[in-house]
Computed example of a mutant assay.
Amino acid sequence: MLLGVCLGTNDLARAAVFYDRLLNTLGMVRTMEADNEVGYGPEGGSSCFWILEPFDKQPATHGNGTQVTFKAVSNDAVTAFHQIALEAGGTDDGAPGYRYRPHYFGAYCRDPDGNKLHVMHESD
């Protein structure tokens, strides 16, 4: 069972501002903070997503073929996630729209460190 996901950053303060705004569109909030990491999860819940400065003190890099996918409650939430990502300093990697299956609505973006993020909603 997967407990959580960590993404590296080279600027924790900048990344925290980005993810504070972005993850709020999905109902996630900052659930913990330490000197070199910030955790997010549902309000009153445990952290399941972290941004952190690498433990080995080497620069954080994004992985080729790596992405984190978030599930949204609606197509509007997918669009808001993507829009906030761009407004907060991220870059577009695929505008909101239907793809893959008839009821699959998703979008892609990258955070300021280049980590690939996908958000999706699939209706019944």
Results as ranks from 00 to 15, higher is better:
K57C: 04
R14V: 10
Y98V: 13
A85Q: 08
A16P: 07
N10W: 14
F55H: 05
P42Q: 08
V78S: 01
E53Q: 06
L12K: 12
V5N: 07
A85C: 12
R21S: 07
H118R: 13
R21H: 13
D56L: 00
P102F: 02
A77K: 08
L23H: 14
E87N: 14
Y40F: 15
R110A: 04
I84V: 15
E33H: 03
E87P: 11
L3N: 11
E37D: 06
A77N: 02
A13L: 08
D20S: 11
L86H: 10
R101W: 09
L23V: 07
E53R: 14
K116P: 08
M120F: 11
H103K: 14
P42I: 11
F18C: 03
Y19D: 08
L3R: 15
A13S: 11
T25S: 12
M32V: 05
C6E: 07
L3D: 08
H121D: 00
Q58G: 04
F55P: 04
P96E: 01
M1Q: 06
E122P: 08
Y40K: 04
G90H: 10
K57P: 03
G97S: 06
D93F: 14
I51Y: 00
T66G: 07
F55T: 01
G44K: 03
L52W: 01
T9R: 14
T69W: 07
R110I: 04
R99M: 06
P42R: 09
Q58P: 04
L117T: 02
G89E: 05
G8T: 11
E53G: 01
F49Q: 02
N64T: 08
D76R: 11
L52F: 03
Y104N: 07
P42Y: 04
R110G: 05
Y19L: 07
A80E: 05
G4C: 13
T91P: 03
T31S: 14
P54V: 00
D92Q: 13
D93H: 15
D56S: 00
F81E: 00
G41L: 04
A107I: 08
E53A: 02
D20G: 06
V29D: 04
G89F: 11
T69A: 15
N10V: 13
G27A: 11
D11H: 09
F70V: 06
M32I: 06
K57R: 02
S46D: 05
D20P: 15
C6Q: 14
R99N: 02
L23Q: 05
G39Q: 01
F81K: 10
S47N: 03
M28E: 02
R99I: 04
T9K: 12
S46T: 05
Y100N: 01
R101D: 02
R21I: 15
T25V: 06
F70A: 05
G39L: 03
L12P: 13
A77T: 03
I84R: 08
G89P: 13
A95I: 13
A85Y: 12
S46L: 07
K116G: 07
V38D: 00
D124F: 14
